[in-house]
Design a binder for these strands. Structure first.
Length: 821
RNA sequence: GCCGGAGUGGCGGAACUGGCAGACGCGCACGACUCAAACUCGUGUUCCCUGACGGGAUUGUGGGUUCAAGUCCCACCUUCGGCACCA
């Protein structure tokens, strides 16, 4: 046992052996407790993995290995989110079919994941672009359709001219498509939607039942954007007093209704046309034309200066009968609420800016407690609560109470009602692209929309030579008459297939279920196995999916629960987000910046175990950190030190008489405790430093030549086992070299003895007036009284007492003594 | 603007419920080994004063609570992320 540590030799050897032995297979129907540890479904890009991705895969692997040793039946699967625009875009750019590039990329990802020693159960690998998989994605589409949660609508859509496709509002956030292309615009196209808004409330309340980072839960709540308020009907003032046209506004502040001094319609609002008076027509039309020319993005980014135009029309305030001028202005959005607002400049900052710009009156109806304000003198709106003024029957009430009273009044007079609005829109699922799961719908001239019968699934994505989008607003599939032309499943007449495909987030909204039974043919998953494994116990991935995938998957799960398919309403019990790993230059790693560090390069120089340990050691799991090439030297040295420890001392350590080393034994139990607790709480950086301290202690024994004890040998045995999750290869090799049978990864995790871990003597710091002056050493079982007298007896302490009697002596839980003079 | 996280040595970071600030590692300096270097090992390494003993200061800034504050409270600064005319 004298060869050198050579990770490049031993790592592939063990990876192959583990694979052959099926060491990481999850067992269905075992009576062990289960643990489902899942990584976010990766999209296999052509660039392959860089060390930043390992920040996700290494920790989940450590947890999985640890849980197995703790006696759990662990499901730790991996698969590919293979459909989607990026694969197709790449294929178009390089003239290779996405099937080929996808297969090549997944093979590369898999190779790299093996390279870093992950323990995935590859027998459960799934690929969302495989017909055996997307058959069930289509099946779920039909489930949603049958439950009234999928519908086709003609509407203005977000459109990315680069991707030549429509986008969901989530994917178009900020005017930049989620692939990073700027210039997202709107286009009127029929498209399919999922009615996620039907679950808006439960998507908020469900967040209270899961163990997720607060940050993500807040982001989801904000995204859904629930606001309570009232819809209030204003009637249009017109010559013909019969048949007064009603126009509703949504407001969260019905208490400010007496402060309405103008009324605003979104430029797209259908009423604008009708309410505009002849003398204002020209001006209004010019304004609308100008507003419509700008994309919604420009309208938002321009934000500051308000614009608008008076229509010449008036509406009547339903509470006090006042006639209020109606304006059209683009700070009101057609897509939210009713597309119309009541302008209350005194109590809303946006309305205030608008009023000041156009010289509209500002009427205060809520005064701050104990003072008064004057509309003409205000420099900003007063949005807070206060006391009602200028509000006829409600004057003097606190505004919060007035809000309720006004709502009651409005409801009793049938002028409106309390409602809840959400910022979140329905989920646009149509993509006018090739590389996705075809939407399983047939358009029949006689029967209308007809779902493809389940026994005819999957609707196969047909092979195509040229699948470039043509800008027609239709998917390239529309050019394939053999695909499009079919017969209606209901009437048997000639009909056409839907040619849109589903966006990739459909595929990833249920994949975690497929892993429980990837071979199942009678449904998307085997109910028995799904019941055993689900929900996911630990879900780990980047925070960038906070409102996309994580919201969609929760939505689908709730639909499945309502359909009786699954017995839970939240799929991911615990979620964690790894911190980002930046390049050495502090920039996000990317090929174009040239700062990418690949696991291949690192494994080649240092080995996978060094990489794994460094990934954990460099920073807390959820913290952003820069890669450092010097830093990894340290973890590499750590493993070499361990290797030498065994090669130098193992053989003789095994032949020692039964001599004990109490201090080392204590350190060993403390280490087992430390490592166990730190893995369980995901503090993997300090788990590594705990192991380093232990190895340093063993190194001290070797150097001092005090290592020839049976305790030392026990310590070496223990070290292999507790290091196994973090550095699986070196430990497996040592396990074999030290003459053990089987795999170290199948050993039981050791327990610690609290008595043996306890120190016999303790060092108690002594402070005088809060400043450290001395430390006294006392037996661990000393009473507080003993500690106190030992502290007072200290020479250094006496010096600072300067003969004066202590005013107060505090002995804090045997941890510290503070003497106050 | 609003919401959330984070500010600790030259660097990454540690400090569980308020109780020895700087664990562990990197880097650096000196020493041992070597003809020499690398590796390895040892010693030191927050800053200031001191030859030393020793002392003082110190967790972004300012205040507060407490016997005791990196940790709790208030205000502010910086920085990173999210949202951003959502009525």
């Amino acid at each position: 046992m004298s060869n050198n540590y050579n990770p490049q030799e031993i790592e592939p050897k063990w990876q192959e052996q583990w694979e052959k032995d099926g060491l990481y297979r999850a067992t269905d129907g075992s009576n062990k407790p289960k643990y489902y540890c899942l990584d976010f479904f990766p999209y296999p890009s052509g660039e392959g993995l860089h060390v930043g991705h390992c920040r996700n895969y290494v920790p989940t692997d450590v947890i999985s290995r640890f849980k197995r040793m703790k006696g759990y039946n662990v499901l730790h699967p991996m698969g590919w989110d293979a459909f989607g625009e990026p694969a197709e875009q790449h294929a178009i750019a390089n003239g290779i079919h996405p099937r080929q590039t996808t297969d090549r990329n997944t093979a590369n990802y898999k190779r790299q994941m093996r390279l870093i020693g992950t323990s995935y159960d590859w027998s459960r690998e799934v690929d969302s672009s495989d017909p055996g998989y997307y058959r069930w994605t289509q099946w779920f589409f039909l489930l949603l359709y049958k439950r009234g949660l999928a519908y086709r609508d003609m509407n203005w859509q977000w459109w990315c001219p680069t991707c030549q496709t429509t986008l969901s509002s989530h994917e178009a956030a900020g005017g930049v498509c989620w692939r990073g292309h700027e210039g997202v615009t709107k286009r009127e196209i029929p498209a399919w939607y999922f009615k996620i808004t039907a679950y808006a409330d439960e998507l908020i309340t469900g967040l209270d039942t899961v163990d997720w980072p607060e940050r993500i839960r807040i982001m989801q709540r904000n995204w859904i954007g629930r606001s309570e308020g009232a819809e209030i009907q204003f009637s249009v003032v017109s010559e013909q007093s019969l048949n007064k046209e009603q126009i509703a506004v949504f407001t969260t502040r019905p208490d400010t209704i007496y402060g309405v001094t103008f009324f605003v319609l979104a430029p797209e609002h259908p009423l604008v046309e009708r309410i505009t008076t002849p003398d204002q027509r020209e001006e209004v039309q010019a304004y609308i034309a100008q507003a419509m020319r700008q994309s919604e993005v420009d309208r938002m980014s321009e934000s500051r200066e308000k614009t608008g135009v008076f229509t010449g029309g008036y509406v009547e305030n339903p509470l006090n009968g006042e006639h209020i001028p109606v304006w059209a202005a683009d700070y009101v959005m057609m897509g939210y609420g009713t597309g119309a607002i009541m302008g209350v400049p005194a109590h809303d900052q946006r309305d205030f800016e608008f009023a000041r710009k156009f010289g509209l009156p500002v009427r205060v109806v809520i005064a701050p407690e104990g003072s008064s304000i004057e509309g003409s003198e205000m420099t900003e709106a007063f949005p807070a609560e206060g006391k009602m003024v200028n509000s006829a029957p409600f004057n003097g009430l606190p505004s919060g109470e007035a809000l309720q009273r006004i709502c009651e009044h409005i409801e009793s007079k049938d002028l409106g009602k309390r409602t809840v609005k959400y910022r979140m829109r329905d989920w646009l699922i149509s993509r006018q692209r090739y590389w996705g799961a075809p939407i399983p719908i047939i358009h029949c001239p006689k029967c209308g929309e007809v779902p493809v019968p389940e026994d005819q699934l999957p609707v196969l994505l047909p092979p195509m030579e040229d699948f470039r989008p043509d800008g027609s607003g239709c998917s390239p599939l529309a050019r394939l008459s053999a695909f499009v032309n079919t017969t209606c499943p209901t009437c048997g007449g000639a009909a056409q297939r839907e040619t849109d495909t589903m966006g990739g987030f459909a595929c990833s909204s249920w994949y975690f279920l497929r892993f429980t039974s990837p071979d199942f043919q009678q449904g998307p998953f085997d109910p028995a196995r799904m019941n055993y494994w689900m929900p996911v116990d630990l879900y780990v991935g980047g925070a960038e999916h906070a409102v996309l995938h994580l919201l969609y998957a929760r939505f689908w799960t709730k639909v499945m629960a309502d359909a009786g398919l699954v017995p839970f309403r939240e799929p991911f019990a615990k979620l964690m987000n790894q911190g980002q790993l930046m390049g050495p230059d502090g920039q996000r790693m990317s090929k174009s910046r040239g700062n990418t560090i690949t696991p291949d390069a690192v494994v080649d120089t240092y080995g996978a175990d060094s990489l794994r340990i460094y990934e954990m050691f460099m920073a807390p799991f959820d913290q952003d950190v820069n890669w450092s090439m010097e830093g990894i030297n340290g973890t590499s040295r750590f493993l070499e030190k361990i290797w030498r420890l065994y090669t130098d001392t193992w053989e003789q350590a095994g032949n020692q008489p039964q001599t004990k080393d109490d201090e080392l034994e204590r350190k060993m139990h403390q280490t087992i405790r430390g490592v166990t607790e730190r893995i369980e709480t995901f503090r993997l950086n300090t788990m590594v430093s705990t192991l380093m301290e232990f190895v340093n202690t063993l190194g001290d024994r070797q150097r001092d030549r005090t290592w020839k004890t049976s305790t030392y040998q026990q310590a070496l045995e223990t070290l292999m086992v507790i290091l196994a999750p973090a550095a699986p290869h070196i430990v497996e090799e040592l396990w074999q070299l030290t003459g053990h049978e089987g795999s170290v990864h199948q050993q039981a995790w050791p327990s610690w003895d609290a008595d043996l871990a306890r120190e016999e003597v303790i060092q108690v710091p002594v402070q005088v007036n809060g400043k450290l002056r001395d430390r006294v050493v006392v037996p661990a079982d000393a009473s507080e009284e003993d500690i106190k007298s030992a502290a007072l007896a200290s020479e250094a302490v006496q010096k600072f007492l300067d003969g004066k009697p202590p005013k107060k002596v505090i002995v804090a839980q045997k941890k510290l003594v503070n003497i106050v003079v």
